[in-house]
Design a protein around this nucleic acid. Structure first.
Length: 380
DNA sequence: TTTTCCCGCCACTGG
DNA sequence: CCAGTGGCGGGAAAA
């Protein structure tokens, strides 16, 4: 039993595919590769088999990626085995719609009792369509246990996003999200520990989103609780497009300007920062295609053995980490204000810009509330 | 230890 | 029946 420190896995050796690492197989990385592969002009149809082969993964994983991407409008199912590439340009729209839906649902929710400081904004019952919660009749009403659709990854993803869009905060802890996304607040039968199962899916989603820079995995400022920070679409436009040639990695944690995007509009302009150039596929201007683009000799996607041929370095993580000092209570508030000032929303819609201000005040109030309570203490 | 989360079994769906 | 989908959770790597 003597201590057995696991292999530190020194990455000192860039070339050493002998060691298996989950990171190499993560959904996030896969998503990045997927995006790199299809986020180019001329792409409009994606075949699942093709994707699976070219990415060297099982079909199952492609479904995961595709379902999530579809939830935010990057893709749309065209037919069997076929998906249409919509591009990042479809994200704003999808988010906008999601937000509306969230607002609608939120409205239906009676807020009569208590408006205590609930961090989470439980939104119940997607109820997206179909019937009105049929009763227990088994006459001929579907549903039944076939909540398959209700439990789909795609829906979970949308609800997850809605949570951020409708909430006043952009930082939600893992368990809060899990709780909110859980079937719902009701269900007296047995809440069970299904949240644990749900959490797994959350991780999947988070990984995909973070690879797109839509969100970031972090921890609460004070506590150690894992949490997700919504970066929004501004976080997208990742620069990681060109396979990360150690060339454009200006990792300046600048906050005033942008994070790591390569917006053509350099100056912060006033407020109508219209992130134009979304006609087809923005970003990617630096289409420095790889040198030789590794010929198609990777057809050997055997079920065994050959399971790895790195597509390229690519450095997903390591975004501009929010280098804000870990101050206490109040101090943080100021940071938020500052952040809000510098951060200019880049939503394609003007209406959203106004909404931003609303969020800002909401953030502050939330922060004050939490800080005032005593500390960022939560039940654990 | 707990948190993160990959793998792939197998139920389900539409032919 | 078959093939395309994708819940779901075991259990192992990572913190």
């Amino acid at each position: 039993m003597s201590s057995s420190p696991p292999p530190p896995s020194r990455e000192s050796d860039p070339k050493n595919p002998y060691f298996y690492s989950r990171k190499d197989k993560s959904l996030g990385l896969l998503c990045s590769n997927f995006l790199k592969l299809y986020n180019r002009d001329g792409v409009d149809t994606i075949g699942l088999d093709d994707a699976a082969n070219r990415l060297g993964v099982e079909r199952r994983r492609i479904y995961d990626i595709v379902n999530i991407l579809e939830s935010i409008g990057v893709l749309t199912k065209k037919g069997k085995n076929q998906y249409s590439w919509k591009g990042f340009g479809g994200i704003p729209q999808a988010l906008d719609k999601l937000k509306e839906e969230a607002a609608r649902e939120d409205l239906s929710m009676d807020g009569s009792c208590s408006n205590s400081a609930n961090v989470s904004s439980e939104n119940h019952c997607a109820g997206s369509s179909d019937s009105k919660t049929d009763r227990r009749d088994k006459t001929s009403v579907p549903s039944k246990v076939d909540n398959r659709k209700e439990k789909s990854l795609g829906l979970l993803t949308q609800n997850f996003v809605k949570l951020f869009l409708s909430a006043k905060v952009n930082l939600i802890s893992l368990d809060n999200a899990a709780t909110a996304l859980l079937g719902d607040v009701h269900d007296p039968t047995a809440m069970k520990n299904n949240s644990a199962a749900k959490v797994r899916r959350l991780y999947d989603i988070a990984n995909v989103f973070s690879s797109m820079n839509l969100l970031e995995k972090t921890h609460h400022p004070e506590s150690r609780k894992p949490a997700f920070r919504w970066l929004g679409f501004k976080g997208s436009l990742m620069n990681a497009t060109a396979t990360g040639f150690s060339l454009n990695e200006s990792k300046k944690r600048a906050f005033g300007t942008e994070i790591t995007n390569i917006l053509p509009k350099k100056h912060k302009s006033d407020s109508s920062l219209d992130w134009d150039s979304n006609k087809g596929d923005m970003l990617m201007h630096t289409a420095h295609d790889l040198k030789s683009e590794h010929s198609d000799s990777l057809e050997l996607q055997g079920k065994h053995g050959s399971k790895n041929f790195v597509f390229g370095p690519f450095a997903p993580a390591s975004l501009s980490k929010v280098g804000d000092s870990e101050n206490k209570d109040g101090r943080q508030l100021k940071d938020l204000e500052d952040l809000a000032s510098t951060y200019r929303p880049q939503y394609s819609n003007q209406a959203l810009n106004d909404l931003f201000d609303h969020y800002v005040s909401a953030w502050k109030s939330w922060f004050v509330e939490v800080a005032g309570k005593k500390e960022i203490r939560e039940v654990s």
